[in-house]
Amino acid sequence: MNQLALLGHAALSKLAAFGRAGMMLFQSLVAKPQPVIMFPLFVKQVYFVGVLSLIIIVVSGLFIGMVLGLQGYTILVDYGSEQAVGQMVALSLVRELAPVVTALLFAGRAGSALTAEIGLMKATEQLSSLEMIGVDPLRRIVAPRFWAGFVCLPILSAIFALVGVYGGAIVGVEWLGIYDGSFWANMQNSVDFYDDVLNGLIKAVVFGFVVTWIAVFQGYDCMPTSEGISQATTKTVVYASLAVLGLDFILTAVMFGEL
């Protein structure tokens, strides 16, 4: 009986948190737009969330593309179809790896930083202080960060994919000697702009929404203590990663699968 009550309590509190997260999102986004104030804040956040994530994204993209090229080559060369490496690298990057890995790295690099920043603002009463000054912290603090994450992830994902493809090309064409005409031609024949590139981008948009939402909510909802902030940061990374992987399956099934 006790266990049942515990389960019920846990379920209810999760549900309540979900409700609060929804309310927060609604209140921060559904507001009279104030472009003059909001745009500089937004730009600043794009800098912190996007520009500063660029290095990790480019480096990871490059290496993942190179590894894909290398692995693809060693497998496909046995079947004499090593010219399909380009196709394999491009398809796996554009459809899956670019949005998913970018989202995971983004959750670790930018998401945790967002949570910690907002959590610390809460702990040091900066959010309360904003409220007392008569500024809604949801609009001032949460909304620009949310939009920045939402916009940055697809951009980062596209950069990741392109860098990865060139990484694969470096390994495949330059080092392993695949004929570069067939490498690119195979790739261009099999990758479709609408089905593959745009669908990958839609994934990135969805992930951007979810990861940033989780990050800002965990920061906004955390206990204003050092322990609470560390828990919230961990939660951001864990929940965001799980959400990305779970959603990726659903999105893949809808876009590419015939479930």
């Binding site: 491009a90 554009v94 951009i155 596209a158 950069i159 994919a161 392109l162 860098v163 493809v165 690119w184 790739m187 261009q188 024949n189 990758v191 479709d192 702009f193 593959d196 590139v197 981008l201």
Partner: peptide, 11 residues
């Protein structure tokens, strides 16, 4: 990057 993906990768 998007244009590159469109023209170079997806042809």
């Amino acid at each position: 990057a998007l244009v590159g993906l469109a023209l170079n990768v997806s042809g």
